[in-house]
Design a protein around this nucleic acid. Sequence first.
DNA 1: CAGGGTTCAATACGTTCA
DNA 2: TGAACGTATTGAACCCTG
Lengths: 519, 519
Amino acid sequence: MSSQTPDLNSRRACDPPKEFEGRICVICADRASGYNFGILTCESCKAFFRRNALRVESIKCPFSNSCEITASSRRFCQACRLSKCFRVGMNNQWLTDAKNSQKLKRKKIKPHKVETTDEEEDKVSVSKAYLEELQKKAKKRPSSCSCTCTCGFYERGTKLSEDGNDQTVRKTSTSRGVVSPPFGTPSPLNVEEHLTTAPIGFSAIRAPPPSVPVSIPQFTQLPPAPNVLPRPTAFPAWQQMGQYLHSATAFNLPGPSMAPVSRWDVFHDLSLPFSSDYHLSLSMTNPEISKYSNLTEEELLILDELYITSEPLKDPIGNQYNQNEISGVLKISGEALQRILVMAGRLQAFRDLEIHDRMQLVKSGFGELLAVRGLMAFDRESKTWRHSSEMEVKIDVLKIDGPELQLFMEQYFKLVDATEDIRTNYTIMLLLTAIVIFRPELPNLKEQHKVCRAQNIYYGILLKVLQVEFPREEAMRKYNRLLALVVELHTVNKAMVRVFCGFDHAVLDPLLRELCDKI
Amino acid sequence: MSSQTPDLNSRRACDPPKEFEGRICVICADRASGYNFGILTCESCKAFFRRNALRVESIKCPFSNSCEITASSRRFCQACRLSKCFRVGMNNQWLTDAKNSQKLKRKKIKPHKVETTDEEEDKVSVSKAYLEELQKKAKKRPSSCSCTCTCGFYERGTKLSEDGNDQTVRKTSTSRGVVSPPFGTPSPLNVEEHLTTAPIGFSAIRAPPPSVPVSIPQFTQLPPAPNVLPRPTAFPAWQQMGQYLHSATAFNLPGPSMAPVSRWDVFHDLSLPFSSDYHLSLSMTNPEISKYSNLTEEELLILDELYITSEPLKDPIGNQYNQNEISGVLKISGEALQRILVMAGRLQAFRDLEIHDRMQLVKSGFGELLAVRGLMAFDRESKTWRHSSEMEVKIDVLKIDGPELQLFMEQYFKLVDATEDIRTNYTIMLLLTAIVIFRPELPNLKEQHKVCRAQNIYYGILLKVLQVEFPREEAMRKYNRLLALVVELHTVNKAMVRVFCGFDHAVLDPLLRELCDKI
DNA sequence: CAGGGTTCAATACGTTCA
DNA sequence: TGAACGTATTGAACCCTG
Ligand SMILES: [Zn+2]
Ligand SMILES: [Zn+2]
Ligand SMILES: [Zn+2]
Ligand SMILES: [Zn+2]
């Protein structure tokens, strides 16, 4: 109790250097006072971390994020100092309180000594001011705070109460947007983590109207994002690639001409009321998908989005290319790929990714994407890929060239055979395309979880679609086959890339060329 | 501790273990000073129990109530330490304070009169107990409110911040992982929703186990490049455990006294160099798993880890419980669950998760976990669950009680029947346990991708194991059945939770009680 | 002595203020 | 910003009693 105070003081008074012997701050090499937030640091670094651990985002290094931190230089760059704190392992989970402290200036209380009065053992005598302060503190109601929960369950700005029983959450009238909804406008602090905080699963469970019963297939365990790690890729030069992709395709964000068909927000912003006429109009637009009655409303919307965004796939390809020559075919492939990327670029889930990840997906996946597109377009009878009636590529064109092409074609046509029953189903192939776009197993993804989530949702829809299209057993079989297909595609992709790379760059479509350069 | 180390060593060198054994603290395995409060404990555990035996209610485990208590880890979780104290039988009847504290309580309640003493105007005289209470309250949380959110999203007692930015919610417990607020321990209102609706709705869309054909050579490649930068936003998981960095146990979280069996690093970009002799020696240790020659080296290691960490499952359960009464069975269930959680806590992949996610997994999954464990232990012949030869629970014990129990039993035994051929295979059931631990479809996971990855890996191993254990076709069939089983378990979980909740809390094991409280 | 209770130095977190 | 300070928990060392 307070009886210790004098002792502590006296100890501190003579504060022996011995205490600090050999202990230096990991951050700035000053004398360490002990372990703070998990790491041996000095007092100043401790205080610094305390103050700033929660505002990483708002601190930026004015130089190049590599400032040296020493006892004398530590004040020059907060960013690097803080960054070093984290790097060496200081842990903000240790912070218990911090943020909330309303800087209530308490009236100064002099050190309180508690004296036991002689008369009554049980009684103590204290300074009145001290007692009052204590009483105030102990009784303090959170009436003045503005805590809110970021879980996304409550409407934003909802005020929380102190005792959990009180469900009548009070709403704040604070003008300052206190809560940032999980997926809405991300708050400045630590955006990414924030995004992951309330994952789709959460909203999907809360959001949908209770009236829609989800029928649960027994065998619903879903597919293997194959626990397989694709080839390691060299660290790419994003800038160059970004340049091309930005300009040439619809990667840029709010493309005014092609407004994104955005439905993913049903998963994002819980606070938006579910607008019935909104989704109604959307689900009406497409009779194709209305037969999939086993899909949840969200899934329907996402499938609908897929349909709508897939329109560019069918955009005509100018016939300035000679489809009877390999070179022409390559150009055409490039054009086709470009259309696929336009489609991807319009998918809300794709747009939600960081540019880095979008690049990564495209870069590593373009072979697969082309392959899937090829499967969609291939006509077995005439042995042609037909983009449209005017744009067909005969298989024979490819039969001439070297061993790489041979290998590729071989693998590819195995796929064609294996998917004969599926690849003509537009819906399924669209879903497959989406699944191939979102490949969480790619290395170097910054937001793998997002990719994973997106892919899983498409997987889920795929299964349900199959269950409508085919009898139960068969659906399952086909589903499994599709899973295998996705894996196979990796192989095909490699072969395809090898083919492309084998050609003179001049022959390649610029997009393909750039992609191949990155390999 | 450090001082007695030599002591111990010298003893060990020449003395029979028996004498030595007599001096080990039952709680933390430090050197015991003698019998304290009825149990052989060390000085520190004695002091600890003294101080905290009467405030059970206010101490909550920040993890999952399964923290291992060792001499070096004992400080990290008061709740688990205290809980262990009680569990091994430390008895607060010996506390002479007990009655005093009753008095204290009464005093606290009764209105305190503040008397101004004559001598000094500024001084007042109050009851000592009252003053202490005030001090405690006031000091606890000097300048912040105690709002908590009831959404069930955050760990209970989680402190909320004023601005929504702070998604790294701070626990009200102090950094040592300890105290939770004396005020509200609000039970999240919506946990049940999580427990029930969540898994089912979403397992349909997520949690993808690898399906049939997974034999593609180039995928055995290891993950990329050490030159990969750790993801900027998510701090590496091990940093989250930084709070233990300064201790001797470093990473031993609620973890093992033995070093964690860590192989998951091969799956991380946080690449520690791959130490070949390390894993080699490990894979030699277990002849059980060497027959699974189709596993990759990494998979073997992970399976091995599973074997090693599963040891605690078999830890004896004290037979102070009457296994012929429901109440005893409930206690035993609690004990069993605790063992499962200890196992989970030792899995590297689990340790790599943030505390929040670990909580989430445990909270929503404990029913499934118990169910799986039950499947492993059930003996069809004798109709008993047999933890060990001394600890058996006859099915009849459960036959008496109400409709909820009936429903549960019915569902459960369907599972028993359905898994007759599998549930006796230890390897498979271990894998199933792991798969059930890592359930990426749970809502609110911060690092769903990690959970997802872990589960996928276990799924992959499971399939391969099945392919060794059974002929190809059958393996596939069983695999699919296991997938379905995982879904079924959700249902069973619901039933089980309902059963537990039906019982008087006093009857429940503290761990179960707390988990049920969240419903 | 054994086993209750108590003391106090060591730590490490939060707060204050120059 | 950081030194100084206030507070809480821990555990070794003690004290006290039957
Ligand atoms: Zn420093
Ligand atoms: Zn800097
Ligand atoms: Zn002990
Ligand atoms: Zn604990």
